[in-house]
Design a protein around this nucleic acid. Structure first.
Lengths: 239, 239
DNA sequence: AGAAGGACATGATAAAGGTCATGTTAAAAT
DNA sequence: ATTTTAACATGACCTTTATCATGTCCTTCT
């Protein structure tokens, strides 16, 4: 943990702190802490006290909810510019955990600072509210797929969800499709789908045979995105 | 649709509009419309344009997402004080529908009014942000149950979810438990669970035989709430 | 009153998906 | 360099759950 650098010339264009007044950006700057997490490390764990809000400066984080016999469900994926945690009342604890999927840098602003910032920076608060509202809509869409889709459809959905959040790798584009900008295990994909590792493996193998995807080192190449969408068209999704 | 009454002496204690300045409460009062919906009527339907925000004054509403072959998934249940819809940018449409579960009264405030109110009433905006943030946490919990629980567990969860949102009927309490303050069909419960009518019926019958619930007219009596919770305890939920 | 439709109920059957067993490969640790 | 562990992969099997069929009861419409 180190004292953070300037928020004003922060390279992350998606950070919400930018919407504060310059006076308040300075204020937050001096009160925030900036922490680096190694891949696999927890930003926060279920049961810990909610002491403030996390802003992802640079990284990839999975928000997981561990249920029955260690089977973990990935509730949300987050990347640079996204928020983790929530403003909590005193004594409140996290119902879920947030774990870095790769080395990540996260800024932390404690409750008192953030609460005051909300009241003094309406535009900032509105942006944050819209962020939550948008997340809510996204998760509502995922509810549908978890409850109605077949495993095959869920796996297709998971791939497209990964693309929506993390996008494609800039240097990964060839005439044979685009490379997902994330390194994720079959077990974690299963965690997104609400199924198990074996089913994911089976279905990814199917997709490969059908030339919809290709496996490239530790990453997945989306060869035929539109057909992948086609698998889900009956649900008329909006990712 | 009629011009609405005063917000100041509105009987609904949970309405967020209260957190605006008195000047703005008046402003909203004059710009809002108040609409009554019959049971089964849509407050808004998927595909319609997002023109503003809905505040439930008095009623019970299900937010549904219709997927494959008319099988509808209930994404969220809402009651007096809750919000429906979201602030949308121009041209945006609803991905889901909201349907009255009983005769309900809903206040509508259009986009321009609400956007300005946000910027001028920090406390109002913060409350709304916290509402969304709380909803987000709630739905994250439901994601887990939809993806990991057995049908039996899902049905138990649905009953407790109904209790959380709508509560018990004041006059329904006897020494044999408490009456859920909602009238809901097996099909709709199936929509909460992500299963079908038959499974719900079977499991409710099981619960009845096990003396966990009792059927009373068109409503359900929770006879043994703690055992019902017990069915879910491995998930250590926080409803 | 009688017909019709909707909600509730239960059994039989089939398909989907979870679990277990086993094996291979690749990376990491000693 | 060798052992160990993690990730990937596939087949077989069995449980769970969805679907289909049928029937009853109750409410609502004509």
């Amino acid at each position: 943990m180190k004292k953070a650098g300037s928020c004003i010339d922060c390279f992350n264009p998606g950070c919400f702190i930018k919407y504060c007044s310059s006076k308040w950006i300075k204020e937050i700057e001096t009160h925030k802490t900036e922490v680096s997490y190694k891949k696999g490390q927890a930003v926060f764990a279920a049961g810990e006290f909610v002491n403030g809000l996390f802003f992802i400066k640079d990284g990839q984080v999975k928000v997981v909810s561990s249920g029955l016999n260690d089977k973990e469900q990935i509730v949300r994926l987050a990347t640079s510019g996204h928020i983790l945690g929530h403003r909590g009342s005193n004594g409140e604890t996290y119902p879920i955990s947030a774990v870095a999927m790769k080395d990540s840098v996260v800024c932390f602003v404690k409750n008192e600072t953030i609460s005051e910032a909300f009241l003094k920076n309406p535009e900032f608060t509105v942006k944050l509210m819209l962020f939550y509202s948008k997340e809510l809509r996204g998760i509502e869409a995922r509810i549908k797929y978890l409850s109605q889709m077949t495993v095959r459809e869920k796996v297709a959905f998971a791939l497209l969800y990964l693309k929506t959040i993390f996008g494609y790798q800039a240097q990964g584009t060839t005439n044979k499709g685009q490379l997902l900008n994330v390194q994720i295990s079959r077990t974690d994909i299963a965690g997104i789908c609400g199924t198990n590792e074996e089913q994911v493996i089976r279905n990814l193998s199917d997709f490969e045979q059908e030339k919809l995807i290709a496996k490239e080192g530790k990453k997945i190449r989306i060869v035929n995105e539109s057909t992948l969408y086609g698998i889900l068209k009956v649900y008329n999704l909006q990712l």
